[in-house]
Computed example of a mutant assay.
Amino acid sequence: MTHTALITGASRGLGAAMALALAPSHHIIAVAKTTGALEELDDQIKAKGGAATLAPMDIGNDAAMQTLCRGIYDRWGRVDMWVHCAVHAAPLTPTSMINTKDMAKSIAGNVTATSTLITYIAPLLGTDGRAIFFDDPVVGHAFHGAYGATKAAQIALARSWQAETSKTGPQVHIATPAPMPTATRARFHPGEDRSVLADPAAEAARILSEING
């Protein structure tokens, strides 16, 4: 039986690292908006002897997510693991100056899309699947209002789902990665010393080890 791992936000950073870490044991279903980055990930997965199905789409597109989940069900009947790394990172700005469009995009990408995905993916996970979400300590920090508020709401959804399924499954995990030299962090912290940040591959291995432990 083929084990499957659905990675939303798989094209780079922690999402790509999680995909590569799971590739030896799972067929990777990689979702992201950037086709070129997904193709690079596919090459890396193949180099490790793994296999992937690429799904270049926006998680905020409800019809696309329905089609994706239906396709997963038709081909495999289930998902063993869902790793949700997709996030919309709005530009940093004083809270009193948050752009309405930036906030709307943050709510759509980080809250609405997550809620919708939980609805669609929960039946695919069944009672013995696992879902992984990622908390971020910058919530509440200065200038992170739009990102922080919607990231906190995303994790609140995950915590509620976790509490609801603690006895029945699926298992819902919430991990807190160490700061990594990702593109998102580069936007938030330009000019910082990236050499002291954690390697995404090492963080992926640590998180999976803690979850499996």
Score class of each variant (00 low, 15 high):
Thr119Phe: 11
Thr4Gly: 03
Ile118Glu: 12
Ile28Glu: 01
Ile72Leu: 05
Leu157Met: 11
Glu164Asp: 14
Gly9Lys: 04
Ala52Ile: 04
Thr34Ala: 12
Leu124Cys: 02
Ala142Leu: 13
Thr35Tyr: 08
Ala17Phe: 10
Ala64Pro: 07
Ala37Gln: 14
Met65Leu: 13
Glu164Trp: 09
Val172Phe: 03
Ser115Val: 11
Gly77Pro: 00
Pro181Gln: 10
Val83Gln: 01
Pro181Lys: 07
Lys33Ile: 12
Gly13Gln: 03
Ala52Asn: 06
Ala153Arg: 06
Gly140Val: 04
Thr165His: 13
Gln66Asp: 15
Val31Trp: 01
Pro181Met: 09
Asp136Ile: 05
Ala16Asn: 05
Trp76Ala: 07
His144Trp: 14
Gly77Glu: 02
Ser195Val: 07
Asn61Lys: 07
Asp128Ala: 14
Glu192Lys: 11
Ile121Glu: 01
Pro179Phe: 10
Leu68Lys: 00
Pro123Ala: 04
Gly77Asn: 02
Ser96Trp: 12
Ala149Asp: 05
Arg75Glu: 14
Leu38Ile: 00
His27Ser: 10
Glu40Trp: 04
Ala204Lys: 00
Met1Lys: 11
Thr93Trp: 06
His173Pro: 04
Ile211Glu: 01
Gln162Gly: 00
Ala178Gly: 09
Ala156Asn: 11
Ile121Ser: 02
Arg78Val: 07
Gly191Cys: 11
Thr114Ala: 13
Thr34Ile: 10
Arg159Gly: 09
Arg12Val: 03
Tyr73Thr: 10
Arg78Cys: 09
Gln66Phe: 08
Arg206Ile: 08
Lys105Glu: 14
Ser106Met: 06
Asp199Ser: 07
Pro94His: 06
Pro177Asn: 08
Thr53Cys: 10
Ala205Phe: 08
Arg12Pro: 02
Thr100Cys: 09
Pro91Ala: 08
Phe134Glu: 00
Ala90Trp: 00
Ile72Gln: 01
Met81Tyr: 08
